[in-house]
Amino acid sequence: MSKKINIVQSTAVPLDMENVDTDQIIPARFLKATSREGFGENLFRDWRYDSHNQPKKDFILNDPTYSGRILVAAKNFGCGSSREHAAWAIKDYGFDVVVSSFFADIFKSNALNNFLLPVTVSDEFLQKIFRAIAGDPSVELIVSLQDQTLTIPSLGETTHFDISDYKKTCLLNGYDDIDFLLSIKDEIEAFERSRD
């Protein structure tokens, strides 16, 4: 897993469907592994493959026209089960950024904890991205974490996205919440004593 994110410049895969839940991203029957690796294979399993394990032609990941490190999804992406396997599967498949107009809470934290950058843009801007890709699948997007911007260079359009200062620093420097929490263990123990 690549830690540290800053600039991602890439073509994108459009997944224009609302309320994509984590059961779709990775169905429960693939959650039996006890390591974090290899989930990309089963990303969107039941949309990607039919019951004979043949790729379904009409699903976007099976369409060679579209590829890239950025997944562009519609509203309420990642709702449902807390399974972090969803974020692992997306990252493992090769995406570094997911763009949507609205993310479910747990998915968003899971993504951030796995150096998969969730970028929230307005509904309008999201439609612009979908249209740009539909017009030309080879169009590139540029995401800059440092500047908190997403740009469609071909249109000369840029939008700003929010991320907490703390999380931004973590992602830019490649450290995570647990590193931080472990570093304040004395304080945690002092808190425990103060409650007794």
């Binding site: 807390s82 399974r83 974020a87 934290s109 899971n110 995570d176 919440d177 647990i178 929490l181 945690i188």
Partner: peptide
């Protein structure tokens, strides 16, 4: 509330979580 596996690891390691 429900958490992801990285957060499970945090709570196992420190009994804490970072939460807004």
């Amino acid at each position: 509330f429900g958490i992801g596996t990285s957060e499970v690891e945090m709570v196992m390691g420190t009994q804490c979580l970072l939460q807004a």
